[in-house]
Computed example of a mutant assay.
Amino acid sequence: MTALSHAQETKGDVKAGEKKIAMCIGCHGIPGYQASFPEIHKVPMISGQSGAYIASALDAYRKGDRKHPTMRGIADSLTDQDIADVAAYYAQHGKAGAAELPAKPKREPSVQVAELLKKGACVSCHGDNFAKPIDPSYPHIAGQHADYLFVALKSYKAEKNANVGRSNAIMAGVAKQFTNAELKALANYLGSLEGDMHTVPQSRFR
């Protein structure tokens, strides 16, 4: 069994996860909080995100498949059980009524973006509304911060950089088809859609 599958298959406990998020809330628990690496962008919303995706992402940071010094340091400190618990904690924060998200986005893409979505075959993995992926280890992307999506998409194009980049053959193949301007157009559209993720402010920051 690979480390990834073991991390994903470990059963998470929400209550245990609540006690293990001290390193997460400083960024992900502050609405609108911005990171400055590798460029200024809002940190992603993870409350309501798929638990399997969160586990997969943390394991990728831990293994170095995702390069980000801060996230690597945090992930390195987590066991498989810690990852499962943290993922379970954030996954249970879906927005009320999120199950009633439309089957397809209410906001139609521009002709240009529609062509880009078709070229990238985005719906084939992330779902027609980009909030119901075909595999739980794939992320919900509808409504995610557009500037973060842009940075994330560009990271799949990065090569030979010790601190930036994501190793995912499928996403690399998709992202490398597009210019950065096209990736930004995709990110802006996806970020404008109704989604099921949000930021849950932590009481200690209120």
Rank of each mutant, 00 (worst) to 15 (best):
K106R: 15
G97C: 13
M171C: 02
N180D: 14
S56K: 15
F178H: 11
L101W: 05
A152W: 08
K157T: 11
G51A: 10
F150E: 12
H126S: 05
H145I: 07
P105Q: 10
G143Q: 10
Y156K: 10
S137R: 11
Q144S: 10
H93W: 15
I74S: 06
G29C: 10
K154M: 15
P102G: 09
P136E: 09
N129C: 08
S155C: 03
R72L: 01
H93L: 15
K42G: 04
E100P: 00
E9R: 09
M197S: 09
S5I: 15
M171I: 02
M197V: 09
K63E: 07
V86R: 03
F130K: 08
L117I: 13
A99H: 04
T10E: 08
K132P: 01
F130R: 05
D135Y: 10
K104E: 12
G127R: 01
N168T: 07
H93C: 08
V174F: 15
N129Y: 03
F130H: 10
H145C: 05
S36T: 13
K15T: 11
Y53E: 05
K15D: 11
K95Q: 08
G94N: 08
L58H: 00
D13I: 03
D147M: 07
R204V: 14
P44N: 14
I54Q: 02
E182D: 09
H28E: 05
F37M: 05
R66Q: 06
G143E: 10
Q49V: 02
E100T: 01
H68V: 08
T199Q: 01
A103Q: 12
M45D: 08
E108T: 15
A35Q: 14
P109G: 07
Q34M: 14
A187D: 04
Y156H: 12
Q49D: 03
D128W: 06
A87L: 01
